[in-house]
Amino acid sequence: MRVNLTVNGRPQEADDVWEGESLLYVLRERLGLPGSKNACEQGECGSCTVRLDGVPVCACLVAAGQAEGREVVTVEGLAEYARQRSSGDAGDTPDLAPIQQAFIDAGAVQCGFCTPGLLVAADEMLEHNPDPSDADIREALSGNLCRCTGYEKIMDAVRLAAARQQEAV
């Protein structure tokens, strides 16, 4: 079957999609967007987290056909998404979303396989909760497994992004 959807602001069309394919497979294997990761394919790790019409979901559990006509934001589009949210002005803003920069600066990236999903989830949390407590951060990210970091640097990164975001306001 054919699936039409908008990914990171661009209309996309995928042909010959097998009916059992997930949105994750379509993104990774058909649309050249492998940033969303395939760690468990059962909704138990969060590494494929994307925003579907603005809502964070596991792309592995969205049937490709269910994405028809909908808007998807992946990690590849996160910087642009954050840019539009903050100003709408593409002027001299940096190439990375604040959460992306914070992950690098805080040492929250090791193997990096969980990183894309965590970034999408954390970015969405900060959108709604710009001043999260540690317990808030842990709850919001409790659907994203990381096996390398022990999460401490991820906590640091989200705190850092929140602090920078508040300074910027």
């Binding site: 967007l33 990690v75 992950f103 990096g112 990183t115």
Partner: peptide, 9 residues
């Protein structure tokens, strides 16, 4: 490799 890893590239 940090930038590549946070951008999905």
């Amino acid at each position: 490799d940090g930038t590549l890893k946070v951008t999905g590239e």
